[in-house]
């Protein structure tokens, strides 16, 4: 029987900001690259994001935030993922995240931070190359 594995991605916007231009463009680019993209809209709490990732059994979570609240919200999300055992999910982030915050975010387990001006094909490629292998 044919194995029909597809990469499933959750694009999530934590925080209260509404700048979804980037998130939507990424969602569209990942879809056009053949992935299944779940987009849950604005104003998602860390609990909602993690529960959604769990129920949807995604391979990848893309977090987009431009409000500046990443220093509060990203640690909460990463901690909840750990609690729920979702440690094999690739987490990446984008938005307005100052350069100096990047090491701290990566230490939390966020694999890559894509700043403004990143080419979408680079992001797609990164996902393909880093998506965890499942048996």
């Amino acid at each position: 029987m044919q194995n029909q594995r597809k990469i499933r991605v959750l694009i999530a916007k934590p925080g209260l900001d509404s700048h979804d231009r980037g998130a939507k463009i990424i969602a569209r680019a990942l879809r056009d690259a053949g992935m299944e993209v779940i987009y849950t809209g604005l104003k998602q709490t860390p609990e909602q994001i993690v529960e959604t990732a769990l129920q949807e059994d995604v391979d990848v979570i893309g977090l987009s935030i431009l409000s500046g609240a990443h220093k509060t919200l990203f640690p909460m999300i990463m901690e909840l993922l750990k609690q729920k055992g979702l440690t094999d999910v690739l987490v990446v982030a984008g938005g307005i995240i100052p350069e100096e915050d990047v090491p701290e975010m990566k230490k939390l387990g966020i694999k890559e931070i894509f700043g403004p001006g990143t080419r979408t094909d680079k992001i797609v490629q990164f996902v393909f190359e880093n998506v965890p292998k499942r048996t």
Partner: peptide, 11 residues
């Protein structure tokens, strides 16, 4: 408000 966490006075 719980939604305000991390957002107060930021933007």
């Amino acid at each position: 408000h719980p939604f305000s966490k991390g957002e107060v006075g930021i933007c």
